[in-house]
Structures are given as structure tokens and as C-alpha cells.
Amino acid sequence: VTTYKLVINGKTLKGETTTKAVDAETAEKAFKQYANDNGVDAVWTYDDATKTFTVTEMV
């Protein structure tokens, strides 16, 4: 189990959160659900070296 981080650069929601998951795909599903629940529709990137997902909402 690995800890993954999500950085949110949204128009109305900004911040960071983490989740523990067995792999990046599982973490991504959890983070996308979190973003969807909070109304963030954005572009996703992932950095495997830092285990960090970044979501940037387009203006």
C-alpha cells in the first residue's frame, strides 16, 4: 500500500489530500470521485516519481 497525493488547482476548490491505495490506478479512481463530488472538472496529470496527481481546472 502506497500513499498518493492529490493537488487541486480549482476555480472554487484548492488544496491537497492524500489516499492510501494498492496502485496508482486505484488512487486515481478515488481522487476522480472526490473531485467529481466537489464539482471539479479539470485536466489531470500524474507524476510517478512523487506519487502525486495534480488536477487543474480550466478557467
Score class of each variant (00 low, 15 high):
Ala35Pro: 02
Ala49His: 10
Trp44Ser: 00
Thr12Lys: 06
Thr26Trp: 05
Lys29Thr: 06
Leu6His: 01
Tyr46Asn: 00
Gln33Asn: 07
Val59Arg: 05
Trp44Leu: 07
Lys51Leu: 07
Asp23Ile: 02
Asp47Ala: 02
Ala35His: 09
Asp23Tyr: 02
Ala24Glu: 05
Lys29Asp: 04
Asn36Phe: 15
Asp37Lys: 13
Thr56Lys: 04
Met58Asp: 12
Ala24Gly: 02
Ala42His: 08
Thr12Tyr: 15
Asp48Asn: 07
Val1Gly: 09
Val40Phe: 15
Thr52Ala: 01
Leu6Glu: 01
Val40Pro: 06
Thr18Gln: 09
Asp23Arg: 02
Ala27Pro: 01
Thr54Trp: 11
Lys20Thr: 10
Trp44Asn: 00
Thr54Lys: 03
Thr12Leu: 12
Val43Ala: 07
Lys11His: 14
Val40Leu: 14
Val1Glu: 11
Lys5His: 09
Ala42Thr: 06
Leu13Asp: 09
Asp37Cys: 14
Thr12Ser: 11
Asp41His: 11
Asp48His: 08
Ala35Ser: 05
Ala42Met: 14
Thr45Leu: 07
Ala35Glu: 02
Val22Trp: 08
Asp23Ser: 09
Lys11Glu: 12
Glu16Lys: 05
Glu57Asp: 11
Thr19Gly: 03
Val43His: 10
Glu25Leu: 10
Ala49Tyr: 08
Tyr34Pro: 01
Thr56Cys: 08
Glu28Val: 06
Ala24Trp: 13
Gln33Val: 08
Asp47Phe: 02
Val22Ala: 09
Thr26Ser: 11
Lys5Gln: 04
Val7Tyr: 07
Thr2Asp: 10
Lys29Gln: 11
Asp47Val: 03
Thr54Asn: 04
Val1Arg: 05
Glu25His: 11
Gly39Ile: 14
Asp23Asn: 10
Glu16His: 09
Thr3His: 04
Asp47Lys: 01
Phe31Ile: 02
Lys29Pro: 01
Thr50Val: 04
Ala21Asp: 01
Val1Leu: 13
Lys32Leu: 10
Leu6Ala: 03
Lys29Trp: 07
Val7Thr: 04
Ile8Ser: 04
Thr52Phe: 01
Asn38Val: 15
Asp41Pro: 09
Asp23Pro: 00
Ala42Asp: 06
Asn38Gln: 14
Thr50Lys: 07
Thr50Ser: 08
Lys11Gly: 15
Val59Ser: 11
Tyr34Ile: 09
Asp48Leu: 04
Asp41Tyr: 12
Asn36Tyr: 14
Ala42Phe: 14
Leu13Gln: 08
Thr52Tyr: 01
Asp41Trp: 10
Asn36Leu: 15
Leu13Trp: 15
Trp44Phe: 13
Tyr4Ala: 01
Thr54Gln: 04
Val7Pro: 01
Tyr46Pro: 00
Asn38Phe: 15
Glu28Thr: 03
Phe31Pro: 00
Thr52Pro: 00
Lys32Ile: 09
Val7Met: 04
Gly15Glu: 14
Lys32Asp: 01
Val43Trp: 08
Ile8His: 03
Ala30Glu: 12
Lys11Val: 15
Thr3Met: 10
Lys5Asp: 02
Thr2Trp: 11
Ala21Gly: 03
Thr19Trp: 10
Val22Met: 10
Glu16Ser: 08
Phe31His: 00
Thr17Leu: 14
Trp44Lys: 00
Lys20Ile: 12
Thr50Ile: 05
Val22Gly: 07
Gly15Ala: 14
Asn36Cys: 12
Val40Ile: 14
Lys11Leu: 15
Lys51Arg: 08
Ile8Cys: 13
Leu13Arg: 03
Val43Met: 09
Asp23Thr: 05
Thr45Ser: 12
Lys11Tyr: 11
Ala21Phe: 06
Gly10Val: 15
Asn36Val: 14
Thr56Val: 08
Lys14Ser: 13
Tyr4Lys: 01
Lys20Leu: 13
Tyr46Arg: 00
Ala30Arg: 11
Phe53Thr: 00
Val40Cys: 08
Val7Ile: 13
Thr18Arg: 05
Gln33Phe: 05
Lys14Val: 12
Asp37Phe: 15
Thr26Arg: 05
Val55Asn: 01
Lys20Gln: 12
Val55Gln: 03
Asn36Ala: 15
Asp41Cys: 12
Lys20Val: 13
Ala35Thr: 12
Thr26Ile: 05
Phe53Gln: 00
Ala49Leu: 11
Phe53Arg: 00
Ala49Val: 11
Met58Glu: 12
Ala21Met: 02
Ile8Thr: 04
Thr50Gln: 04
Leu6Tyr: 01
Tyr34His: 04
Val59Tyr: 12
Lys11Met: 13
Gly10Tyr: 15
Gly39Thr: 08
Glu25Gly: 07
Lys51Val: 02
Thr19Val: 13
Thr18Asn: 04
Thr18Tyr: 15
Thr45Met: 06
Ala27Tyr: 01
Ala42Val: 09
Tyr46Val: 00
Ile8Pro: 01
Val43Ser: 07
Gln33Cys: 08
Tyr46Ala: 00
Val40Lys: 06
Gln33Arg: 09
Asn36Gln: 14
Asp37Ile: 14
Asn36Lys: 15
Thr3Ile: 12
Phe53Gly: 00
Ala21Cys: 07
Gly39Phe: 15
Glu57Val: 05
Phe31Thr: 01
Gly10Asn: 07
Ala30Ser: 08
Val22Phe: 10
Asn38Cys: 15
Ala24Thr: 07
Thr19Ile: 14
Thr56Asp: 09
Asp41Ala: 08
Asn9Thr: 06
Ala35Val: 15
Glu25Ala: 13
Tyr34Trp: 14
Thr45Pro: 00
Thr45Val: 09
Thr3Asp: 06
Val40Thr: 05
Lys14Phe: 10
Glu25Asp: 09
Gly10Met: 15
Thr12Met: 08
Thr18Lys: 05
Ala42Tyr: 13
Glu57Trp: 07
Asp48Gln: 08
Thr12Gln: 09
Tyr46Ser: 00
Thr45Tyr: 07
Met58Arg: 09
Asp47Thr: 03
Lys32Tyr: 04
Thr2Ile: 12
Lys5Glu: 02
Trp44Thr: 01
Val43Asn: 08
Lys29Val: 08
Thr45Cys: 08
Val7Cys: 07
Val43Cys: 11
Ala42Gly: 15
Thr52Asn: 00
Ala35Gln: 04
Glu57Thr: 05
Phe53Leu: 02
Thr45Glu: 11
Thr2Arg: 08
Leu6Ile: 03
Asp37Tyr: 12
Thr56Tyr: 08
Glu16Trp: 11
Thr54Ile: 06
Ile8Arg: 01
Ala27Asp: 01
Ala24Ile: 09
Lys29Ile: 09
Leu6Thr: 01
Thr17Arg: 14
Asn9Lys: 09
Lys5Ser: 05
Val22Asp: 05
Val59Asp: 13
Glu16Gln: 08
